[in-house]
């Protein structure tokens, strides 16, 4: 019962704030709605027993990425409305209709796939020698997923160098 109330409250908040992000005319307000959206998603992670990801969500998304967005919004000092000029070839209504069609398709897939009984039992998770959410994720990251983990670190290094090179005025 508690989970039901929490789920519907958080869903309403997440979807409402998501709509606010893409509809608010003021970009700074949009970024602030995005922060609240990320915090609500972090609470959903707690409900889903993913405490490590909830902390990472708050630290990386709400603390890091959104601050980056705010910096850029402040640096990009707009003298005129960014939405003023519209390409006459742009068809926003077609975009909305296509997105609605994709939503119907996704919802149909979800309802269909969960309405059937699962045919085979799911394979049991590999036995982990450690207990606790953070310990188990760390154990997986440094055993089975060591190479993807290292590749992700290289990706972050490349992104950091690339962002500096792009944003610098001259090398």
């Amino acid at each position: 019962m508690v989970e039901t109330i929490v789920f519907y409250t958080l869903s309403a908040l997440i979807l409402g704030l998501g709509v606010a992000v893409i509809t608010t005319p003021n970009t700074v307000h949009s970024v602030l709605f995005l922060v609240m959206n990320f915090l609500c998603v972090a609470v959903i992670y707690v409900v889903l027993e993913a405490e490590f990801l909830a902390v990472i969500q708050v630290l990386v998304y709400a603390g890091g990425i959104v601050v980056l967005y705010l910096f850029v919004v402040m640096l990009v000092n707009l003298k005129r409305d960014p939405e003023a000029h519209q390409d006459p070839r742009r068809l926003s209504l077609v975009g909305l209709a296509l997105a609605g069609a994709v939503l119907l398709e996704l919802a149909g897939i979800v309802v269909y796939s969960y309405s059937r009984e699962p045919s085979a039992p799911v394979a049991a998770a590999a036995a982990s020698p450690v207990q606790g959410n953070v310990e188990q994720i760390g154990w997986l990251l440094y055993t089975d997923y060591l190479i993807p983990f290292e590749v992700a670190s290289v990706l972050l290094l490349v992104a950091m160098v690339g962002a500096i090179v792009l944003a610098k005025r001259e090398l």
Binding site: I65, L155, G162
Partner: peptide
């Protein structure tokens, strides 16, 4: 999340 961070940094650059 790592890819999202990289995407945000490069895209905003």
């Amino acid at each position: 999340i790592a890819v999202a961070a990289a995407e945000a940094a490069v895209g905003l650059g």
